[in-house]
């Protein structure tokens, strides 16, 4: 088996193990917020880093040359942001919700065609190097906003239905989650805006469909952000928006990367 593929499988297994362990601990009422909860995520992340490093060396550029690599790169960005957000907002349970998404992304990637040898080496400017990674990190931020939105909706549901059990106690307060969603969306909008601005400096041809979709996603999330900032909608509705909104960038990956 090819080394990069093996690394990817190991990384996926680590994330899955993290989910299984967390669910078992939660069910037994033994879940505790501590540094060990980060371990499966850290191991999975290390394998992701190794995979991306090898692919980057192979292409002599950021490994975003196929749908296969884009899925792994987004997964890597999500884990990176999870480490930052989890530590900052004490949302380590976010890992329980993040790990399955990464496992799904990577499992999907494993079934995608992968032919790294066919990638043409093209001379690229700094802007061309920056554009795609920045956009992918923005997508990862939207993914984390989506996951945090799911946590918000779950906590809201438990509070409404008076289901005060282990998961309720481990989930962060809804005002924390609400703030975390807004910050993730804001980060995503900022990064995607920079990525889109960089297209004005790019000389390589970019398809109109790709540009239209990317600008539309930026527009959509800017509107969501404004609605959050101005408190036009309730926190519950904005959580729904962050969850449903993510389907747009997620589904667009199939269109955008193909061009």
């Amino acid at each position: 088996m090819e080394l990069t593929r093996l690394l990817l499988i190991l990384s996926t297994v680590a994330f899955m193990a993290g989910v299984v362990h967390a669910i078992a601990a939660l069910r037994a009422g033994r879940w505790q917020e501590n540094k060990w909860q980060f371990l499966p995520m850290a191991v999975g992340f290390a394998f992701q880093c190794a995979f991306l490093y090898l692919r980057g060396e192979m292409h002599a550029r950021c490994p975003l040359t196929s749908q296969f690599e884009v899925f792994i790169f987004i997964g890597w960005c999500i884990v990176l942001l999870y480490f930052l957000v989890g530590a900052t907002y004490r949302l380590s349970l976010l890992g329980l919700f993040t790990a399955p998404l990464i496992a799904i992304l990577q499992t999907l990637a494993l079934f995608m065609p992968d032919n790294p040898g066919s990638v043409k080496h093209v001379k690229m400017s700094v802007w061309e190097h920056l554009h795609a990674p920045l956009a992918m990190i923005a997508y990862a931020a939207f993914a984390l906003a989506c996951i945090t939105g799911v946590m918000f909706l779950l906590q809201d549901h438990l509070l409404k239905k008076h289901r005060i059990h282990a998961l309720f106690r481990q989930l962060p307060p809804i005002h924390h989650l609400s703030r975390a969603i807004m910050r993730m969306v804001a980060l995503g909008v900022l990064l995607l805006a920079v990525a889109m601005m960089s297209t004005f400096k790019i000389h390589l041809p970019i398809s109109t469909v790709k540009m239209t979709i990317s600008w539309s996603i930026l527009g959509l999330y800017t509107v969501i952000l404004l609605l959050m900032w101005r408190h036009t909608l309730s926190a519950r509705h904005t959580a729904w928006l962050s969850v449903l909104g993510f389907f747009v960038p997620f589904l667009s990956l199939w269109v955008v990367i193909g061009r």
Binding site: L159, I164, F168, L171, P173, H175
Partner: peptide, 20 residues
């Protein structure tokens, strides 16, 4: 020490899961 055992502490726990 998990969970609240009095009405007062339940009220506090609930409030802490909603507000600062």
């Amino acid at each position: 020490q998990r969970g609240s055992t009095s009405v007062g502490s339940v009220a506090v726990d609930l409030a802490e899961k909603i507000f600062d």
